[in-house]
Write a protein that binds this DNA or RNA. Structure first.
Lengths: 330, 330
DNA sequence: GGCTTTTGTGTAAGCGCTTACAGAGAAGTG
DNA sequence: CACTTCTCTGTAAGCGCTTACACAAAAGCC
């Protein structure tokens, strides 16, 4: 790691400019000269310093990603899709989690100084800081948030998918519903799901707050809900983790799912597929979200595109057994 | 992002050395002078270039991490623990996945040029390249592999935990066992688990290959195993994903778990807890693995320690319902 | 008051690499 | 042969920041 381009040049008997040209193919180099350079590189086991290259080029060849936490499988899948495409494009990925961190502003700015652009999940970064980053010309792509002027946004479809899910549930003949996991922000993913479900079920469904979208919070809220008056026949959950909590609550209360109460989730994470009963849920194309985000960011970084774009990816309704019986199916 | 230290110095009417000293606190600066500098910094919204600082300091303030994939929740948890401590120590985390990648050597070397040290999972990086990195003085910490000269290793305990698991299973009175997920490498994690289980169950257990440690491969191998002659009464699986596959196979064949066949896993991932029956498994302190790795790497990077160290973290036997009935217990 | 020590600041040299531009030599053309 | 064009190479200037060292002024001490 201590060999510099100067030592290679000396050993090969050429200038550092020639070494650079030979290695990068950025200019004409005689075959004989190239051989001498490559031989010296091999003998000295030289690898160009990333720092030197980046400073001289004025670019990092790296992408950033800011997320609230990775404990939910949702974020992991997006990250994997993102990293895969970033690597294909010759870029490293620098990660930053904001969970439990103070001075998020400083952390995000430090990240911005290390990368050519970044992906931000939803509202992980405070809005004033987002506005500042946009003003500074930082290339940004957002996943899972409403459109924002000056930056790209990418999300999965929510409203129509929620309507399809609610329609399917109604087809089971249920008449009393609850939506577990009230929206935190207007127009965020969960709010759109709530809107879509409500369009179909109307006054037959009521939203219940869970405080966070975790298994634990879903369990607590479901326990309270299922112990109360007017128990719903079906619970539509904001996401799979909350739904897993609801399954635990039903189990503890000795309620059969879906016989006594049906439960649905959102995301189609691994645990949802392996729970019993297997969760009926909506699958988000999470890897594709990450992959598309990396490509969008590439367009912004290379200048292939300079106008913000807002994309919506399609979802898939995964009917399993938690919503009710399906004659002659699965 | 375009303001340089020169512009700040000009605006504050001091030299760039004074700006640097004022911002970093590396030398005496008069209070009056410091105020002028801070005012200029604020007016110009200056943030020091990470590249400039790193090149001048000769360090990146970043940690690398190389993993085969993040699809398994195991890797995610380790990454989270790692990132959290790295951030506390003022370091960013640069990730690299090797799954499906060609030219892993080039990718790893590029990563090495961006960070002050890195964490590598098991045998993700080919041994010759590992030897070369060690020789080049790259600070390395390995997780989940046997001790290696010249680098730190960190793993969870396997053999004694496997003995405890096997002892518990034997206590259920089973007499025929299978180990699903044969070891790939001598002394790797799975091999140690296999050794521990075999010490207790001896000739009553036989290893079955799964090719990979995934749900799908576990399912295929379990299907074959359970359809064959001499069906085992209990299946000890290499890890939770393989165990989830075994649960799917049993379900498909109409076998009751644990009535007809008991199943155990390893890791205690979310899906293992939410499966039904809930998996008996061994919990690895995955976040702590990551956190300890980051701290170990910090010691190597700062020079607080220069001799390699090999640590083993304790695990916890999680008895749930997939191994058999437990009177008056959950 | 003279000498020593401390505080504060600026200059210059790098850290490792890229590349514009100038110049030399070789090749091509009329 | 003279002129033009092409190939190849080296020099010098930066990219943005840190800091050793020299020097000046102020403070402290006898």
């Amino acid at each position: 790691m201590d060999v510099t381009i100067y030592e290679v040049a000396k050993r090969a008997g050429v200038s550092i400019a020639t070494v650079s040209r030979a290695l990068r193919g950025t200019g004409p180099v005689a075959a004989r000269t190239r051989e001498k350079v490559l031989k010296a590189v091999e003998e000295l086991n030289f690898t160009p310093s990333r720092l030197g290259v980046s400073l001289a080029e004025g670019r990092h060849a790296a992408n950033g990603i800011v997320f609230p936490d990775l404990a939910g499988p949702y974020y992991t899948e997006v990250l994997l899709g993102y990293e895969e495409v970033a690597s294909e494009l010759g870029r490293s990925v620098v990660i930053l989690s904001t969970k439990g961190r103070t001075k998020v502003g400083d952390l995000v700015k430090d990240l911005a100084g290390r990368v050519d652009g970044m992906l931000i999940f939803g509202h992980t970064v405070p809005e004033p800081l987002v506005a500042e980053l946009v003003r500074l010309g930082v290339r940004l792509v957002f996943v899972s948030r409403e459109p924002l002027a000056g930056a790209d946004t990418l999300r999965s479809e929510n409203t129509a998918s929620a309507r399809a899910l609610a329609g399917h549930l109604a087809g089971h003949g249920y008449e009393r519903f609850a939506f577990l996991g009230a929206p935190l922000t207007s127009q965020d993913d969960v709010d759109q799901r709530w809107q879509g479900v409500r369009e179909v079920l109307g006054g037959a469904i009521e939203a219940v707050d869970t405080r966070h979208y975790t298994v634990e919070c879903g369990y607590d809220a479901a326990l309270t809900l299922l112990r109360g008056e007017g128990r719903p026949e079906a619970i539509v959950c904001s996401d799979d983790e909350v739904a897993l909590g609801a399954l635990l609550a039903a189990e503890e209360l000795g309620l059969d799912v879906p016989g006594d109460v049906a439960v649905t989730g959102w995301d189609d994470i691994m645990a949802a597929r392996h729970a019993r009963p297997a969760l009926t849920t909506v699958r988000q194309p999470m890897r594709e979200l990450g992959a598309r985000a990396a490509r969008a960011l590439d367009e912004l970084i290379t200048g292939a595109r300079d106008t913000p774009r807002h994309l919506v990816l399609t979802t898939e309704l995964m009917i399993r057994s938690s919503c009710g019986g399906h004659p002659a199916a699965t």
